[in-house]
Amino acid sequence: MSFLAENFPLIRDAFLTTLSLAVVSGICALILGTVLAAMRVSPVPALRGLATFYVELFRNTPLTVVFFFLAFGIVYVDLQFPSRFITAVAALSLYTAAFVCEALRSGINAVPAGQAEAARALGLDFRQSLTTVVLPQAFRTVVPPLGNVWIALAKNTSIAAGFAVADLTALLQRLSNSAADELALVFVAVVAGYLVITLPSAWAISVLERRLAIVR
C-alpha cells in the first residue's frame, strides 16, 4: 500500500490523462458523429456519399493504424499536431465519430417516418425537422448504443500509451518495469482507474435511458 501512496502523484496524473483523453475525444466524436449522421440522412446525395465513405473508412481501419497515420504518416502532408495528447485526441475522435454516426443513424431510422413527414408538412426545413423532431427522439433510443461507444472509447484511450502519452496503460508499463514485485498492486490500481471512468457512466446511461424513455 505504501507503494501506491509513494506513487500517488504519478497514478493521479495518469488517471487524469486517461479521463481527459476519453472526455475530450468523446465530445469531439459526438459532435463530428452527429454531423456525419445528419449528412447520411440528408437529401443531398453527395453529402450522403461522403459520410458513408468516411464511416466505412474509419470503421474498418484498426485504431492503431489511425494513430500511426496521425503520429507519423501525417508529416508527409506537411502537417503536425502540436502535442502527442492532441494527436491521440484526434485519432480517437475521428475513429469514434464513425461509431457515433452509426449509432445515431440507427436511432434516426427507428423514428417513424411519419414524424419527419409531419415536421416537413408544417413547413420546417431539413435542419429544423432534424434538430427539433427527429434527433431528440433518436437520441433517446441511442442512449444504450452510445453508452457502448463511450465505454469502448474509454478503453481505446489505452492505445495512446503506445504513442508516448502518459496515461494509465503507460503507467502500467512503466511501473511494471521499475517495480516488478508490486505488479499485482499496479494492476489493481490501473484497472480501478478504468472502472472509475466506465462504471459510473454505465450507471448514468441506465438512468438516462429510463428518464428519456418515450411512450408511444
Binding site: 417513424p112 411519419g114 414524424q115 413527414e117 409531419a118 415536421a119 416537413r120 408538412a121 408544417l122 413547413g123 420546417l124 426545413d125 423532431v133 431528440p136 427522439q137 433517446r140 418515450i214 411512450v215 408511444r216
Partner: peptide, 19 residues
C-alpha cells in the same frame, strides 16, 4: 418549406410529435 407552411396536412396515423 415556406410554401408547405401554407398547406395543412392531416395524416391517417396522426403523426403527432411523440416527444
Amino acid at each position: 418549406a415556406r410554401l408547405r407552411a401554407d398547406v395543412g396536412m392531416v395524416f391517417q396515423s396522426f403523426n403527432l410529435f411523440a416527444h
